[in-house]
């Protein structure tokens, strides 16, 4: 059994109409075939929450969920997103309340400059969606494609672990504080 009609073709001169679901909203757009999902999100839909750090699949900043899977939007042609579901950082929360991951990132110091944060959050959501009780090692592995230059990752792990507790119905863990040495100093003034 073979499908009817000529092979579907997009471009190079004519744009193609695609429809996709972005953060649960159906969207219909005209796209050039050389446009990536990253460009579609940021430039056509104004969803600038998704960042970019290399556009070559080397840093993880542009990560989104594509049909529930963690993917790099800089390496996905928009034309291949027809009929698919995309979740970006903007889609993590529904309403004014932060998603438990977002709240945990804010409270645990997991976001400093905030530039890797959208991709990191989406990756964290992906790992917890699949494994609500992910271990520290599993979290580190799942986030291993997301570079962060600010934090050294440790506060990110703690945030993901705390959010996982909340998502399992347990109370969040408080942010871990560094040990403080406030003993009377030998060199006090």
């Amino acid at each position: 059994m073979s499908p009817a009609g000529p092979v579907p073709e997009h471009g190079p001169r004519a744009r193609s109409r695609i429809s996709l679901i972005v953060n649960t909203q159906p969207r219909e757009l005209l796209v050039d075939p050389w446009k990536t999902l990253l460009e579609l999100l940021r430039e056509d839909l104004g969803l600038t929450g998704t960042k970019h750090g290399c556009e070559l699949g080397e840093c993880g900043a542009c990560a989104v969920l594509l049909d529930g899977d963690l993917a790099l939007s800089c390496l996905v042609p928009a034309v291949e997103c027809d009929g698919r579901h995309v979740t970006t950082v903007e889609g993590l929360r529904d309403g004014p309340e932060l998603h438990p991951l977002q709240a945990a990132f804010a409270d645990h110091g997991a976001t400093q400059c905030g530039y890797c944060t959208p991709g990191m959050l989406v990756a964290a959501r992906w790992v917890l969606d699949r494994n609500p009780s992910a271990t520290r090692e599993e979290i580190a592995e799942a986030l291993s494609g997301q570079l962060c230059r600010c934090t050294g990752y440790l506060q990110i792990y703690e945030a993901v672990e705390s959010a996982a507790r909340v998502l399992r119905g347990e109370p969040p863990s408080p942010p871990r504080l560094p040990a403080a040495d406030r003993s009377v100093p030998d060199d006090a003034r």
Binding site: S2, P3, V7, P8, E9, H10, G11, P12, S16, D32, P33, W34, K35, T36, E39, H52, C54, E55, L56, P77, V79
Partner: peptide, 18 residues
């Protein structure tokens, strides 16, 4: 931002079509 060059995209639906 690094962008793709212009191209046309074909989406065959079966192996023979491909």
């Amino acid at each position: 931002m690094m962008r793709l060059p212009r191209f046309r995209y074909l989406a065959p639906r079966t192996l023979p079509e491909l």
